[in-house]
């Protein structure tokens, strides 16, 4: 092996690693990984519906139609940026139902921290009823103030459903097809660009399928 060969190999290696790191640094860290849930059945749950006493909702209720699940909360600042877009979408013709999954609607005054809430809540039923009333009240007020784009809102007080959906933050949005399979997941705010270029074409495509 002569000197030229060695130099060529060296330069090739440096070029390769530079290219890999250059490409790697351009990627959005939020999109580092595709959710393993895409292409799988949306995890089942049963949660109370906001402002509908005794009303519950399960993903199975939406079988046969394409729908969106949007995770939000009144304490979520980024949701305020996303919200008008959802309202506009919900009012547009042919919009699919958007179900609002309220994630951990806990008191913003820190009178009750998530940890305390968790301690009271080994399972959903034992959350202090008073806290549920307050969480519902806050959510309803927020929605009447900012307009309500949701077909219905469900309350995930302790965030368990969020975990089952592989939630990494709020907001997140899922597109679920007629068979109840998750087809798309948006981590973070749904932008105009992604709504127009990804979500709307996907919904149209999914609706065309039987």
């Amino acid at each position: 092996m002569n000197r030229t060969t060695i130099i060529v190999i060296g330069v090739a290696l440096i070029a390769f690693f530079s290219y890999v790191s250059y490409k790697g640094m351009q990627r959005d860290p939020h999109l580092l990984t595709d959710s393993p849930l895409i292409g799988k059945q949306a995890p089942d749950f049963k949660l109370a519906v906001l402002d509908k006493p005794d009303g519950t909702f399960s993903p199975a209720d939406m079988k046969g139609q394409v729908w969106m699940l949007n995770v939000w909360a009144t304490w979520c600042v980024a949701c305020r940026d996303e919200h008008p877009r959802l309202v506009r979408y919900a009012r547009s013709a042919g919009a699919v139902p958007v179900v609002g999954l309220n994630h951990k609607e806990i008191r913003g005054d820190f009178a009750l921290s998530p940890d305390q809430l968790i301690r009271i809540v080994p399972d959903q039923k034992t959350v202090s009823p008073q806290e549920i009333v307050l969480a519902d009240q806050r959510s309803s007020d927020w929605l009447s103030k900012h307009e309500n784009p949701y077909a219905l809102v469900i309350m995930d007080i302790d965030g368990r459903v969020g975990l089952d959906y592989g939630l990494t933050g709020v907001p997140e949005t899922y597109v679920i097809d007629k068979q109840g399979i998750i087809r798309y997941k948006e981590v973070g705010v749904v932008t105009d660009e992604n709504l127009k270029n990804k979500i709307l074409p996907l919904i149209a495509e999914l609706q065309a399928k039987s």
Partner: peptide, 10 residues
């Protein structure tokens, strides 16, 4: 982070 607390609880 809130999610991390939830995950630890689970």
């Amino acid at each position: 982070a809130g999610i991390a607390q939830d995950m630890r609880r689970e």
